[in-house]
Simulated scan of single mutants.
Amino acid sequence: MTKFFAKTAAAALFVAAIAAPAMAQNASGTVQLKGNVALSCTIAVQDLGQSLSLKNGESNKTVGSVTENCNAGSGYKITLASSNAGKLKSGNFTIDYQVNYDSFTGALTSQAVVDRANAQFNKKSDLKVTVGASDQYIAGDYADTVTVTIAAK
């Protein structure tokens, strides 16, 4: 009977192995993707080398061209600053002028700020100057320097 029992047990195991579904094993893993974009704000200022007609005056004469690039998601600011507080200067003599840059028009008696709400690439703007005409300006070579700066917010 032992042989019979052994054959029956072996047959039962064989039937159980065939009848039972194979259990598949699932395995998984993860890969994290990472990267970084560095903050980059650049400005290219081109001085067009224009000479202003002071006696006859100028109205929105383009004197410079600016290309802005800034990838700051919160935007950036353009600052315009005059070396002579918004005046053309020859020795102790001065002549007032105004600038026009995109959304700003006025004198540069203090820094002017143009606010950009978001990132922009290859944004081109002209720097324009207006000077009133006068026969009463004092003779001399008049000059000022306007500095254009870009900074992320």
Rank of each mutant, 00 (worst) to 15 (best):
S59N: 08
E68D: 11
L108T: 05
S83Q: 12
D144G: 09
T94K: 04
N122D: 09
G86E: 04
T8H: 07
A44L: 14
S90L: 05
K153D: 14
F121G: 04
S83C: 03
Y142G: 02
A107K: 12
R116D: 06
C41Y: 07
D141E: 04
A38D: 10
A16C: 13
G132V: 09
T105I: 06
A12Q: 08
T130C: 08
F5K: 11
S103V: 11
I138S: 08
A22N: 13
K123L: 05
D115A: 12
S83I: 04
I150K: 01
P21K: 05
C41P: 00
V131T: 04
V37C: 01
D141M: 02
A133P: 03
V114W: 01
V31F: 08
K61Y: 06
N60L: 12
K77W: 12
L80Y: 08
Q32Y: 12
K7S: 09
A27G: 10
V114E: 04
L80S: 06
K77R: 14
A12D: 05
G29T: 13
V63Y: 03
G57Q: 00
Y142A: 06
T30H: 13
Q98R: 14
N36W: 10
V131C: 01
G73A: 14
S125C: 03
V63Q: 01
S103D: 14
Q136S: 07
G75Q: 03
Q32G: 07
I18H: 02
V45I: 15
T8M: 15
F104R: 09
T130N: 13
V146K: 00
Q98I: 07
A133T: 10
N26F: 13
V129Q: 01
A151Y: 07
G57C: 00
Q25Y: 07
G29C: 05
V148S: 01
K77Q: 13
T30A: 15
L48D: 11
I150S: 00
K61C: 02
N84V: 03
I18Q: 04
T62P: 00
F14S: 09
V37W: 03
A72Q: 12
V37N: 08
A16D: 04
T147Y: 08
C41A: 12
Q50W: 03
V113T: 11
T94E: 11
S103C: 08
N60K: 11
E68C: 07
D115Y: 10
G73K: 11
A16W: 10
L88D: 01
V129K: 01
L33M: 10
C70H: 02
I138C: 00
T130R: 05
N122G: 10
L48N: 15
C41H: 06
A152C: 05
K124I: 12
Q32F: 15
A133Y: 06
T8F: 15
F104D: 05
T147Q: 07
Y142T: 09
L54F: 12
N56F: 06
A112C: 07
R116C: 06
V114K: 02
Q111A: 13
K123C: 02
K153H: 10
Y76G: 02
V148R: 00
E58W: 03
